[in-house]
Simulated scan of single mutants.
Amino acid sequence: MFPIRDHNPSERTPYVTYALLAANILIFLSYWPLQTNNPNDLGAFWDAWAMRPVEISQGIDLHTLVTSMFLHGGWMHLAGNMLFLYIFGDNLEDQLGHVPFLLFYLACGVLADFGQILADPNSPIPNVGASGAIAGVMGGYLLLFPKAKVDIIIIFIVFFKIFPIPAWVMLGLWMAFQLFNGITADIAGGGVAYWAHAGGFIAGFVILIPFWLRRGGQAFWQQTEGHPPHPDAKYSPSTIPVIPRRK
């Protein structure tokens, strides 16, 4: 289950969201050859730019709190993060403005790193990815637009189906998965920084509470019934074919 679009196109061009998408993709392409041709150089690259909790705990390599959020471990890691940023980033940028949104994004990414550091401060494992910052965007989206429609695609092995659901359902389930996976990963081990995801999500939600209150709090929700303040986009029903089970 993952989102493919929301029903809320922004009213102005989300230049910062587009710039972040471009920056993440171009930076990934710049070091991708190291992943396939030069494992030793790749290790040195991670050592210089990826965030290691043990180093931050010791007060060294603090620049990696920012640089790590523009690095990704592979194509699927990059594609998943960019999809979520593309879906949810434009509406927050529309509400906050270009520069405030950029500062919000970076702050969520740094605070997400601290979520992972608090969970395992002595870990030497390099952490990379925009997931924490994008989780913050999702947390802010949940606060401002809890009833916005999000189309998710569910894959059932033999067929696919698109469902429009409220944002609070999709984002609430996503957050619950991060908490569950974070707890189980602490027990069994794993390679995903779930506590960074959870920390970023909570940070984004909390940071935007003053903004939400200035807009009227619950009155802001009542004005648009929890949707962005413009008409929803209308999409035609899903034309993804159902693949019948073979007998």
Rank of each mutant, 00 (worst) to 15 (best):
R12E: 08
K147S: 14
A203E: 06
H77Q: 10
P121S: 05
L62W: 11
G132A: 04
L62A: 13
N24K: 08
F28I: 07
A19L: 14
A22S: 09
A23F: 10
M69T: 05
A50F: 12
N81W: 02
I87W: 00
F101K: 01
E55W: 01
N127H: 09
L111W: 03
P3T: 12
L213W: 03
G182E: 02
Y235N: 04
G115W: 08
I134R: 02
I87T: 04
F156L: 14
R5N: 03
V66N: 04
N38E: 14
W75P: 08
L144R: 10
I152F: 03
D232V: 06
I187S: 11
F145E: 08
I60C: 03
D6M: 02
Q223W: 00
G189P: 11
Y31W: 12
Y194W: 15
Y86A: 15
L21Q: 13
I25A: 15
G80V: 14
I56S: 05
L171A: 01
N181P: 01
N127W: 09
P166N: 02
G217F: 00
S123C: 08
L96M: 11
T17Y: 00
F156E: 11
E11A: 13
A130R: 00
G172A: 06
V54Q: 13
S57K: 03
P244Q: 07
F104R: 05
I117S: 09
V66C: 06
P14T: 09
L171I: 09
G139E: 02
N37T: 15
Q58H: 13
L143R: 01
I243G: 01
G140S: 03
P53N: 05
I183P: 07
L111A: 11
Y141V: 11
P53T: 04
M69C: 01
F114P: 03
F88M: 09
P39F: 09
M51N: 08
A233G: 09
V137M: 08
T36S: 13
G139T: 04
T239R: 02
M1H: 02
P39M: 10
F101N: 05
N38I: 02
F145D: 06
A167P: 05
G109S: 08
G73Q: 09
Y194C: 04
Y141G: 10
P124R: 00
R5H: 07
L71E: 09
H227P: 02
L96T: 06
F205H: 01
Y18D: 13
G136H: 08
F177N: 15
I243Y: 07
D94Y: 06
A233D: 14
G216E: 08
S30L: 15
W75V: 15
G59F: 10
G172D: 03
V192N: 11
